[in-house]
Amino acid sequence: MENKKIIQLKEPLEVAGKTLTEIEVRRSTIGDEEDAMQTAIQLKKGKNPLTVEMCLMARVTRLPYDKIRQMHGQDYAAIRATLNELNGVEAPKDDDENPMTPSVS
């Protein structure tokens, strides 16, 4: 199983005076998840699941939380998909995403 993977950003990020066009995503640990929750609590957003997830994404990419917040959806989705792949988590099926969507038969 891979431990890390590099993804290309659709929109470059400025971090510490450098322009990043790609970032490395590493597989997460349970400790990363615990630390992400603690960071979200410190931000007074511990009950917001997106904030907790964004804190986790900051840990596994080594990007500042504020830079994660500035990302556009396509790049953030690529990080999420890559992390899921590295962790061996299957992406939800379209039907699972919204239980209110009627199934087509």
Rank of each mutant, 00 (worst) to 15 (best):
I30N: 09
P64C: 05
D66Y: 10
L86A: 01
M37V: 10
L20V: 08
L50E: 11
K45I: 04
M54C: 09
K44T: 05
P12I: 10
T82S: 15
S28P: 08
A40G: 01
I30C: 03
K47P: 00
P49Y: 01
K18F: 12
T29H: 08
E14L: 14
R69Q: 15
R62L: 10
P49S: 08
Q42Y: 08
G17M: 13
L63V: 02
P64Y: 09
D75G: 01
G31W: 03
A58R: 05
A81L: 07
S28N: 13
E11C: 02
I41D: 11
C55E: 05
L43K: 13
L20M: 09
T39M: 13
I23Y: 09
L56H: 03
Q74G: 10
C55M: 02
D32A: 06
P12L: 10
M57T: 08
V52I: 15
L43C: 07
T29C: 10
A36G: 07
Q42H: 09
N48Y: 08
L50R: 10
R59I: 11
T51W: 13
K47G: 09
E85V: 00
A78E: 14
A16F: 01
L83C: 05
A81P: 02
L83D: 10
A16S: 04
N48D: 15
E11Q: 11
L9W: 05
D75I: 00
L50S: 03
P49T: 11
T19G: 00
L13F: 05
V15C: 01
M57L: 15
A36Y: 05
R69C: 13
D32R: 09
G31M: 10
R59C: 01
V25M: 03
Y76S: 07
I79H: 05
T39I: 12
T51S: 14
A58T: 10
Y65K: 04
G17E: 13
K18A: 15
K10I: 07
E85L: 07
Q38Y: 12
L9F: 03
A58E: 05
A40D: 04
T29L: 13
Q74A: 11
M57C: 14
D35T: 10
I30S: 14
M37P: 00
P64D: 03
S28I: 08
T29Q: 09
D75H: 00
I68L: 06
R59V: 06
Q42N: 14
L9I: 06
Q70N: 13
D66P: 01
